[in-house]
């Protein structure tokens, strides 16, 4: 049997057939005009093509506003209390024409954040999310401090460093290119 399988190397034939099929599929799809649905390869050409992120990807903490442009946060301090690394600090305040408390100061120290998403789970008012921003590197330590006002990075917008990562929409679909 051994001599037969050596003289007629069917296993080598099968392997070559498989790799040949993959080669043909990727070669002919990659070197046609780029239509996302036709591409068979898994390479993401990252800076030019936005990354396809999973919907549950946990990026940077971001505060949300409601339809009127009001901050949704009501300072229940649930996120501050549940945070395992204590990166969230909230200062309560009253505001004219608003029944519920208003966060005068909401700071987020990203340098210690472990991106566990406990704060978002604890929030009863859906006022914070972890967005899909993953390019979080910065040159200065201060750039990791985020807040609602003042010198801090803005909590309502993506970090200006991450120019290429505001990619996927909420369904996790990469935009068409």
């Amino acid at each position: 049997m051994s001599i037969l399988s050596t003289l007629f190397p069917y296993d080598i034939y099968k392997g070559l057939k498989l790799t040949g099929r993959y080669f043909g599929r990727n070669f002919f799809s990659a070197n046609r005009k780029k239509v996302r649905a036709n591409l068979k390869h898994i390479t993401v050409e990252y800076p030019e093509v936005p990354v396809h992120l999973a919907p549950r990807f946990r990026g940077r903490l971001q505060m949300l506003r409601d339809e009127q442009g009001e901050i949704k946060c009501i300072c229940c301090l649930a996120c501050e209390r549940i945070c395992p690394t204590q990166v969230i600090t909230i200062e309560k305040d009253k505001k004219e024409g608003r029944k519920l408390p208003f966060p005068k100061r909401y700071t987020f120290e990203m340098e210690r954040c472990i991106f566990c998403e406990f704060c978002v789970e604890a929030c009863a008012y859906d006022s914070i999310i972890l967005n899909h921003q993953f390019e979080l590197a910065a040159y200065n330590r201060e750039d990791f401090s985020h807040g609602t006002e003042g010198v801090f990075q803005n909590m309502f917008k993506p970090t200006p460093v991450g120019t290429f990562s505001v990619s996927a929409d909420d369904d996790g679909n990469a935009p068409h290119y």
Partner: peptide, 18 residues
């Protein structure tokens, strides 16, 4: 060729910035 066989693209760019 090895890139296409392994469902990659192979070399598409050179090292360096934008």
């Amino acid at each position: 060729v090895i890139g296409y066989v392994q469902v990659r693209l192979g070399a598409t760019r050179i090292a360096g910035g934008r």
